[in-house]
Design a protein around this nucleic acid. Structure first.
Lengths: 139, 139
DNA sequence: CCGTATCCTACGAGATACTG
DNA sequence: CAGTATCTCGTAGGATACGG
């Protein structure tokens, strides 16, 4: 995340032809997107920017808990991947606006599916957890 | 951050009614699902199990790179959340089968959306990166 | 075969202070 | 205001060895 180098050994060097359905093949794509939005804040940033453009400090204030440094890093990654557009206004004091690119918006739409799933099945998961933990406690 | 105007560690104790669209509210659900499948291996496990049931060692061999310990932890979490079913056959040598629960399958379907997105936009992201890195290098 | 128990390291990420 | 520079630390996760 910090440095420019990319991941460790190659996950994406598959040659399986019969595995292209959704398994070995997709770990590549999934891994990539997971590395991108799987961190602690990217999804939140995407969510807020989907709502409307934000200035840096504005974003920072809304996403409470994130440090300026980490927010910066997060935004840089999203910018690097073409998901977020960064606009610097040469004023004083400086002003920087962030917004979603068209590509970023398509991702956001997809992400909503995940959020929806999470919201719809929150109760089921909680129930499963409770049951599991009780079994574990009983044992 | 420390001014108490917001909530520090608790993300999911919201009372906002007007925020239910997709912003502050959804960070809760998204955060939960992200914590669940945002780790290095869960998505892969889900993918393989969606294909068909697997035994432990089978899974371990297919997802090369994961340690037994971490695979165990991953599976336990998924089991705990009701996404994966673990069946122990009281034979000797022991045999343990893993499969997706119905809930797990619904998540898998949703996840495919993300994979599809990643595959469809892989090239765009690569291009954006190249452009970004070049700008960075030029500066 | 299917794990658990330990130990250990690398990296994500918070705190803090400084710059343009 | 919008970052950058350091330092530090918690923890996910790898290696390895042992247990049922």
């Amino acid at each position: 995340m910090e440095d420019g180098t990319f991941k460790s050994p190659g996950y994406c060097d598959e040659t399986d032809e019969d595995a292209r359905q959704w398994d070995a093949r997709s770990d590549c794509a999934v891994r990539k997107v997971a590395d991108r939005i799987g961190d602690k804040w990217s999804v939140l940033v995407l969510a807020y920017l989907a709502e409307r453009g934000h200035r840096f400090g504005e974003l920072w204030r809304r996403i409470d808990g994130v440090s300026r440094r980490v927010l910066t890093v997060t935004l840089r990654q999203l910018e690097r991947d073409g998901l977020v557009l960064r606009t610097v206004h040469p004023t004083v004091p400086p002003r920087v606006d962030y917004a979603l690119t068209p590509l970023g918006e398509t991702l956001h739409v997809t992400l909503r599916g995940l959020v929806t799933w999470a919201e719809e099945h929150e109760a089921e998961i909680a129930a499963a957890r409770a049951a599991f933990d009780e079994r574990a406690g009983a044992a």
